[in-house]
Design a protein around this nucleic acid. Structure first.
Lengths: 155, 155
DNA sequence: CTTTTGGTTCTGCAAAATTAGAACTAAAAG
DNA sequence: CTTTTAGTTCTAATTTTGCAGAACCAAAAG
């Protein structure tokens, strides 16, 4: 059962996730993060969020595909127990940054195509591309740095 | 006039921008980035992209509002000369990272609400929140670091 | 072999987003 | 003062999304 506070948080977190996925999937993910139970089955999710079976099924499968949730099973029980995959959220940040590199390639192609290599726009494209590479370098090691940092604090 | 290569790049870059804005606006921004002319007027944009006047007007104004493009004028000429604002793209990255902080606040609220503070999910939420703060710290200075780095290279 | 459980898949609909087209407007030109 | 230019705004059509409901299916239970 969800308290009002839980529901409120699910909606607010859901709104964030809606930037990258449909509303129903966003709510499902938020529910699995906020819930006090460590895992929920199909029907728990459906009834908690008042969704149809199809919306629940499609939402769950999209989240499974993108690895943002996972499930385990119990012997002699056909149900799947869904849970949030916190590691995927970390990886998600990384893949967001990888997207930047894709755009960067297109920017570099654009520079190639520019007639006037000395124009303000062309130069700025070059600088941006440079900055984006720098950002990528810096952030690609953030996770490792953070893990080290943490170890130092603990021990 | 746009060559086939230009058109291809506009479409590809447009697809990236479509993640965050409507198709017409995305194409307009891509056009202003790719174009060999340093600025374009309303009618240039409209005809290059085969857009209606309303789509052109709405797209341009949305981009102006979000500061992703700007315009200048010429004396005795009522037309506006639109150009890409490269700095806004840099700021855009920064505001993306700021969004993370908003989500983080909600994650911290979630931890408060958790019945079992020692559960895997609760602990992972704490770690994620910690990591996101760390990421924010690191990236908030990336631009300054990069500028310094660049200066060292040049002089 | 019939029923129940735990889903998936297939329409179809409703809402939201996006665009085109036409009417409109304000400033400048003729 | 009529026309042209450089757009804006309104309305309506079109497309895209997302969801519900119902039909469907396979495995297990009765």
């Amino acid at each position: 059962m969800l308290t009002e506070k839980h529901k409120e948080l699910i909606e607010k977190i859901g709104v964030y996730f809606e930037l990258a996925m449909p509303p129903a999937a966003a709510r499902i993910l938020a529910l699995l993060i906020v819930s006090d139970q460590d895992s929920l089955v199909f029907e728990d999710i459906r009834s908690s969020l008042n969704l149809s079976k199809s919306a629940t099924s499609n939402g769950i499968n999209a989240l499974l595909d993108s690895k943002r949730i996972e499930y385990y099973t119990k012997m002699g029980d056909r149900k799947r127990y869904f849970k949030w995959n916190p590691t995927s959220t970390i990886n998600h940040f990384r893949s967001e940054i990888e997207k930047i590199l894709g755009l960067n390639t297109l920017f570099e192609n654009t520079i190639q195509l520019k007639r006037d290599k000395e124009s303000y726009n062309t130069k700025m494209l070059g600088e941006l591309s440079d900055l984006m590479h720098f950002l990528y370098q810096e952030t690609s090691t953030v996770y490792e740095q953070w893990k080290e940092n943490k170890q130092q604090k603990v021990y």
